[in-house]
Write a protein that binds this DNA or RNA. Structure first.
Length: 422
DNA sequence: TCTGGGGTCCTAGGACCC
DNA sequence: TCTGGGGTCCTAGGACCC
């Protein structure tokens, strides 16, 4: 059996941990640049807000109901996610972090010694006690069904936060009551196709014959069909190296200034290189993309990208930033109001063994690596970007994202730690 | 005035090989 | 004038996820 542990309205729940007065109030968290709503509590949903709403379009609702609005604070959410994961790892041997707020557990073997539902209720309580984050838990023979279980656990109080689908009768009942569009692996296009074939519930899909599914769908559709029938076939992924690493942002203000764009690209390249070194990899392709604001129909539109292949794969911030800058220069067009830029690293491989190019020496590589190591150590000790390239610019810049409602970094910055007055 | 960011997997089809 | 059969590798784009 598998279990899915899903944190309820995770970003909002984290904000509530440090603001207990928000309990029972409508709360939402915005995307980068304070653009759209990305997370909201049931109370906020009840006010008529939806995930994805641009905040400026729903300002009336926000004001009328006194909805508490937060800018996104990924540092804080990641630190809290780590705490939840630590508790899971202490409780269950095999834990797979699927996303910042969801983890799959492999419960194989535990059924011999535990009542699985009781076991997971204990885990849920421990998370609540240690982090104050509420979670919903699903237990089922496949991951797709486990996710479905956590959905039921979240919606119906009777489950006490844990829903186990462990009999044929429960499976059929769950499949008939669940929305097809909410099934893991069924997106907009697949939903249209299923509806076209007269399939309206997950149960109707699961009851189709394997040959019918094979003739109408490819591998992903077949996998979902098997999973719905309780046959696990989405394997538990080991922690893998990322195959691509991307950092991109919309700007707080549009800009047509090449220097400002260069600073943004240098900053994103630095952040990508950091992530790359963090997983012990090197990359040999650097892509830069820029675009104007597609929502502004009154302005000239432009979007382009360029890729440079490096002679020697690297994770060196200087080399990656230089390549990114050359890419930007090759696609920059004057007279455009740019709204967004980004850097993507790809062709990622392990850092050793490293294939040198004809013009490289081991010594040069070693020195560069040591330099990066020192920079990383200083930044780990004194804070992110204590040392960075001057190319990133200094001080507040026009392209920086907007975040007017960010809560403090309670868990990762000593200057912002929670103050309690007694 | 204001509209997010970061990933993975799969497949078809082109280019190329003998 | 007639012009096969069997492969691999790469890439763009679609679909999906959070």
């Amino acid at each position: 059996m598998y279990s899915l542990v899903d944190c309820n309205s995770f970003f909002c729940s984290v904000e509530k941990v440090f603001n207990p007065g928000l309990e029972g109030k409508p709360v939402c968290v915005l995307s980068n640049n304070d653009g759209c709503i990305v997370a909201l509590t049931p109370e906020a949903k009840a006010c008529g807000l939806h995930r994805g709403d641009p905040i400026f379009k729903v300002e009336g609702i926000v004001r009328h109901y006194g909805v508490k609005v937060f800018s996104t604070n990924m540092q804080l959410y990641a630190a809290m996610s780590q705490r939840v994961t630590n508790i899971l790892r202490k409780s269950i041997h095999h834990v797979e972090n699927y996303s910042i707020d969801e983890s799959f557990l492999d419960l194989d073997g535990y059924e011999r010694y535990y009542d699985l539902a009781e076991l997971m209720k204990g885990v849920k309580e421990r998370i609540r006690l240690c982090t104050d984050i509420p979670v919903s838990v699903g237990i089922a023979p496949s991951k797709t069904l486990a996710k479905m279980g956590s959905w039921f656990a979240k919606r119906y109080r009777g489950y006490d936060g844990v829903c186990m689908i462990d009999t044929e009768e429960k499976r059929r009942k769950a499949l008939s009551a669940f929305a097809l569009s909410d099934v893991w692996g069924i997106g907009r296009r697949t939903l249209e196709k299923l509806n076209y074939h007269g399939i309206a519930t997950p149960l109707e899909y699961a009851d189709k014959s394997e040959s019918w599914v094979r003739s109408h769908f490819h591998k992903p559709g077949l996998q979902t069909w098997l999973e719905l029938n309780g046959v696990p076939c989405i394997d538990t992924a080991e922690v893998r190296r990322r195959q691509s690493i991307c950092t991109s942002r919309s700007f707080g203000e549009m800009t047509g200034d090449l220097r400002a764009l260069k600073a943004s690209v240098a900053s994103f390249a630095g952040s990508c290189a950091n992530k790359l070194r963090g997983q012990g990899s090197v990359c040999s392709s650097v892509t830069v993309f820029v675009s104007s604001n597609p929502f502004r129909e009154d302005l000239a539109q432009y979007a382009n990208s360029a890729t440079e292949t490096l002679l020697t794969a690297t994770s060196d911030t200087i080399e990656i930033t230089q390549a990114a800058t050359r890419c930007l220069e090759s696609i920059f067009l004057p007279g455009i109001d740019y709204k967004r830029s980004g850097v993507i690293l790809s062709n990622i491989a392990a850092e050793s063994p490293l294939q040198l190019s004809l013009f490289d020496t081991n010594r040069k590589r070693r020195e560069r690596k040591e330099l990066m190591h020192i920079v990383d150590n200083i930044n780990a000790r004194y804070g992110v970007k204590t040392i960075h390239l001057l190319a990133e610019g200094t001080g507040k810049q026009s392209w920086h994202v907007k975040c007017e409602h960010r809560s403090p970094n309670y868990l990762t910055d000593i200057d912002e730690i929670l103050t309690v007055r007694i």
